[in-house]
Amino acid sequence: MALDIWQPLLLSLKVALWATGLNLLLGVATAFALSRWRSRLSNLFDAMFTLPLVLPPTVLGYYLLVLLGRRGAFGAWLEHWGINPVFTWQGAVIASTLAAFPLVYKAARAAFEGVDPQLESAARVLGLSRLAVFFRVSLPLASRGIVAGALLTFARALGEFGATLMIAGNLPGRTQTLSVAIYSAIEAGDEAGANTLVVVASLTCIVVLLLAGRLTRGHAPQRVV
């Protein structure tokens, strides 16, 4: 049986790109809100948002199944609209997004906390609304940290295995990502296939890291104080 390398590779890249995009929106918004919100509750939320980093991925996958499965609270509602993310590539996106969320959230939060509040005050006094201050001052000054977090998110999503396997399963050509395909090949005793996939996965990661280096270097000049 000829092993198809492209299908799992392209699927992995598609899933990782979606997860990175979603996390950029969700993680940056959450990080900014929590970095500006002073309350004891914010520590609790911080712990909650960091949880996917320390929980075993299988536990995440289990939670997702409970939530999104046909009998799950949210899953039943989705079913009503004819959507069922279990055993689909969208399910893999949800799993990867959740597993990688803390990486962009943590990086963005540290970046926002590093922005001098005086600069935001200066922008307010110069006539800007809070939203305009975010887009013109806070976000550009935090962009380096956010880009670094996004690249880590991409790498993490690319390698996601446990939660993806549990919610999206292992359907060749449909939900079989690169890391799941490697596991499958080993299970089936296809050592040559596993070797090829492992080389492809390693090369992909090296390319991502090289791109990451170029992206972070090629940024607008900024002095790090």
Binding site: Q118, A122, A123, R124, V125, G127, S129, L141
Partner: peptide, 19 residues
């Protein structure tokens, strides 16, 4: 709100936008 007051504010450390 601050933007509506139309004041000029010179900060001690100038608070120039570094980007």
């Amino acid at each position: 709100p601050a933007p509506a007051r139309r004041v000029g504010y010179l900060f001690q450390d100038y608070a120039l936008f570094p980007h």
